[in-house]
Nucleic acid binder design. Structure first.
Lengths: 124, 124
DNA sequence: CGTCTATGTAGATGTCTGTCAACATAGAGG
DNA sequence: CCTCTATGTTGACAGACATCTACATAGACG
């Protein structure tokens, strides 16, 4: 279950949008990440997980926050998982999810020209 | 043509994902912005415009970079325009586009917890 | 083992989206 | 005024996607 960290975010990280034109490949990889976040439900899931005590949340916590069926939540979590934004780990009865802050930081760094703070987080 | 600045980015700007759960409304507004960027063509357009000399590029410059028809480029530019990420201005024969860096900065600030640099840009 | 709860998978369905060809508009320049 | 080039709009169509219901798996606990 502990897959490798998403190669996706690795390549597409280090050239801010405004410095030089994105390569075709970079844009494809970046678009995958943005697409994973381009949904209100997934953004709230991400936020709920990231802001939850201990940095992790179980699916049961997440489901209650929405007027959606279990399978739908499960689907969105899968999208987030496959894009490398979160990881899920089963402990006993429940599955706990946590975010990969590095991926968010890389994404953030792409958007602004000289984001030293985010760059530090990235290389840490 | 010089519409108001996107209200979108105003509301959804100031609470990093990981600090507290996004409201339903915030997530909807943010998702619109991410959706606008969730396409390789639009990301490259954004990057081409942002990194172009003088901070602006005319459509003729952009079209050549893709194997796509004019209308398709036009469609993507419209999406970026309506999301508030770019503005277009006609000067004589050509239309010039430029990005709204504040919007990118706000988006960036949402992704990382304590992004002081981006926050400054925002309030500037 | 059997059953109950938590989570995920499979398939179906209606809606959204990227793309194109055809047409429309806007300036430039004869 | 007419035509040429640059850009945008419309309508059509194929593929992607969010959501659901029905079913499957995994662990807890009697």
């Amino acid at each position: 279950m502990s897959k490798q960290l998403p190669i996706i975010a690795m390549d597409a990280c280090c050239s801010p949008l405004a410095r030089e034109p994105l390569s075709e490949e970079q844009s494809v990889e970046l678009a995958k990440l943005f697409k994973a976040m381009a949904d209100p439900v997934r953004l709230r899931l991400l936020s709920l997980i990231a802001s939850h005590a201990g940095g992790e949340a179980c699916v049961c916590d997440l489901t209650d926050a929405f007027d959606l069926t279990g399978p739908t939540i499960s689907h969105h979590l899968k999208v987030l998982r496959e894009s490398g934004l979160i990881t899920g780990e089963r402990r006993g009865t429940w599955v706990y999810y946590r975010v990969h802050p590095e991926v968010l930081a890389r994404l953030s760094a792409v958007l602004v020209p000289g984001d030293a703070a985010a760059a530090e987080v990235v290389s840490a």
